[in-house]
Amino acid sequence: MTVRVLIRLLTLVLTGTLVHACSGGSSGGVYNQAFNVSGQWTGTLSDSAAVARTASMTLSDGDGTVTGTLSVVGHTCISGGSLTGTAVQAPANTTDDNPLTSDQENSNQGTVNLTVTSTQASGGVSAVTIALGGEDYSTPPAVSFSTPPSGGSRATGVAILGTVTADTDGQVAGIIITDPGSGYVIAPTVTITAASEDDDAQGAQATATIDTATVTDSVTFTLTGSSSSLTGQYSGVWKSTTTSCASQTQGTITLSRL
């Protein structure tokens, strides 16, 4: 074999090596593709008891500033809300990127931090006004409030009777709220039993007022992955006017891009 042939073979080998190196991508992602999470995502959200629910996100990623919405099906606490946060691309040339390419290769991977918030009324009973004191009461009558929508808790209260001095003897003078309840969208109906001693006695009547002040709850999602799949954890406070959500405001989430 002549020297000229050896040189030609060596040239072919080196050329093939360079072509392969320059055309290859990073093992950390897709060649020169930015990390962007805009679009529709769907997956599962699992609470601390490992119960999985269907979750979906619609995200808009503008140069790392992310906004969107979240929807969760069947979760006791998190139903959905508005999302805000950031997306940060992993540094280029950090995971087996090709050093022979003229441009640095983007890894198509990164981290996403999102917070979902929901503003809701606490919906508890804040006051009860006596519309009619009734008559012939010798002991305080039973008081009950109608049931709030699903997820709320019923209010409770006790009646107090008037006095001879105030010329309200035998009447209901007021109601003390022992538990305001929660979740009322409209004021509940107040029922006061009539005096048992006299079937013809007129029962007392009252109306309730609910607390319309709002509370804002939030849950934070910390995700890692690529522009096609994300996994991570969530934690935070949701429906802070109740205690039933404490064990379900943390867990894991897995999402795939549609």
Rank of each mutant, 00 (worst) to 15 (best):
D179Y: 13
T189G: 07
A213R: 14
G170I: 00
W238T: 05
G225Y: 01
Q202D: 11
G232A: 12
A208E: 04
T191R: 05
V190P: 03
A208P: 01
T209A: 15
P188M: 06
I210V: 13
S228V: 12
W238Y: 12
W238M: 09
Q205G: 05
A213E: 14
I176H: 05
G232V: 03
T224C: 03
D199R: 11
S226N: 15
G181I: 07
Y184R: 02
V219F: 06
T241S: 08
T178E: 10
S182T: 05
V190Y: 00
Q171S: 09
Q233R: 09
A213P: 02
T242V: 14
Q171D: 10
V237M: 09
T178D: 06
V185M: 11
Q171N: 05
T209I: 10
I177G: 11
I186W: 10
T222E: 11
T214L: 15
G236S: 06
A201T: 02
T243Q: 15
Q205M: 12
T242H: 03
S182W: 02
T220G: 09
T212C: 09
G232T: 03
A208Y: 00
T214A: 13
T231V: 11
S226G: 14
V237F: 06
T207W: 08
Y184G: 03
A173R: 02
T189D: 13
D200R: 12
A213M: 14
V190C: 01
Q233G: 05
V237S: 14
T193H: 01
D211T: 11
D198C: 09
T212L: 15
Q171G: 02
I192C: 11
S226E: 04
F221V: 01
I186V: 07
T231K: 10
G170R: 08
T191C: 04
V185K: 02
D198L: 09
I192A: 07
W238S: 01
T207P: 03
D211A: 10
I176F: 02
Q205P: 01
A201E: 01
I177A: 09
T189E: 06
T209K: 14
I186H: 04
P188R: 07
Q233I: 11
A204N: 07
S227L: 11
D198W: 11
S228H: 07
S227H: 06
I177F: 08
I177V: 03
S240R: 12
A187S: 05
Q205T: 09
V215L: 15
P188F: 02
A195I: 06
A194I: 04
S227R: 05
F221D: 00
S235L: 06
S227I: 03
G232W: 00
I177P: 04
T191S: 12
I175T: 00
G174T: 01
T216L: 11
T224M: 03
V172R: 05
T241I: 07
V172Q: 03
T178Q: 13
I186C: 05
G170T: 03
K239S: 08
G225D: 04
T212E: 15
I175R: 02
F221Q: 12
D200L: 15
S235E: 07
S240M: 14
I186M: 11
